[in-house]
Amino acid sequence: MKKLLLLLLLTACHLSAQKQLPDLTLNNTDGVKVSLKNDFNEKDKIYIFSFWATWCAPCIQELDEMNDLQAGWKKELNLEIVAVSTDDARTQKRVHPLVSGKGWEYKVLLDSNQDLKRALSIVNIPYTVVVKNGVIVHIQNGYVPGSEEELFAKLKTL
């Protein structure tokens, strides 16, 4: 039964993928505008957009794991991890201190109005969107320890 459920989930994720990354502009933690279309468009590069919030413990755990693994991943693949904070005006002031304290070595964007989250129909976080050549090629919803290894296995097939 678990295998059938997993197969259905993977099929749903595959079918929901294959659409264009929305053409939106978000700020980074320094207040600089970043265009999704223009700044994440290197040919054949894999972009991993991880949606998170400061109040989401599984999100932070996933980003910690990816931060620890990304150097090894980059030896095998041309990829970039981008953390997209969905914190609203009330909690957004916590983003920069948390990121600084964690020492995450990837770009952090602020989706403070949740425009990108809405454009991608994201309901729950953590939520990971993998983009290659401007097209969403994989979606992973939720996080459990070890799922970063499943993600990397999937990335190697792209």
Rank of each mutant, 00 (worst) to 15 (best):
E80K: 06
I81M: 04
I81T: 13
I81G: 11
V82E: 00
A83H: 05
V84L: 13
V84Q: 00
S85C: 03
S85P: 03
S85H: 11
S85W: 03
S85K: 05
T86K: 07
T86E: 12
T86L: 02
T86D: 08
D87G: 13
D87N: 08
D87K: 07
D87L: 07
D88G: 14
D88L: 14
A89M: 06
A89G: 00
R90S: 01
R90N: 02
T91Q: 05
T91E: 13
T91N: 08
T91F: 08
Q92I: 15
Q92N: 14
Q92W: 03
K93A: 12
K93S: 12
K93V: 06
R94D: 15
R94I: 02
R94M: 14
R94G: 09
V95C: 01
V95L: 07
V95I: 09
H96M: 10
H96T: 15
H96P: 08
P97G: 08
P97I: 12
L98V: 12
L98I: 15
V99R: 01
V99S: 11
V99N: 01
S100P: 00
G101Y: 10
G101V: 02
G101H: 12
K102C: 11
G103N: 13
G103H: 04
W104H: 08
E105T: 15
Y106F: 15
Y106L: 11
Y106N: 11
K107W: 04
K107T: 15
V108Q: 02
V108P: 11
L109K: 12
L109E: 00
L110W: 04
L110T: 13
D111R: 04
D111I: 11
D111C: 03
S112Q: 15
S112C: 06
Q114E: 09
Q114G: 08
D115I: 10
D115V: 07
D115G: 00
D115W: 01
L116P: 07
L116D: 12
K117F: 10
K117D: 04
R118N: 14
R118D: 11
R118Y: 09
R118C: 01
A119M: 01
A119E: 04
A119W: 00
L120C: 11
S121G: 03
S121N: 15
I122H: 09
I122T: 04
I122G: 09
V123T: 13
V123C: 04
V123N: 04
V123I: 08
N124T: 14
I125Y: 11
P126H: 12
Y127A: 13
T128V: 07
T128Q: 06
T128R: 08
V129E: 04
V129W: 04
V129T: 13
V129L: 10
V130A: 08
V131H: 06
V131I: 05
N133G: 01
N133T: 02
N133S: 05
V135H: 12
V135R: 10
V135G: 02
V135A: 03
I136L: 04
I136R: 05
V137A: 10
V137P: 05
V137M: 11
H138I: 00
I139M: 14
I139Q: 15
I139K: 15
Q140K: 06
Q140E: 08
G142D: 00
G142N: 06
G142Q: 07
G142E: 10
Y143T: 07
V144A: 00
V144K: 06
P145L: 01
P145F: 06
P145D: 02
S147P: 01
S147E: 03
S147G: 05
S147Y: 10
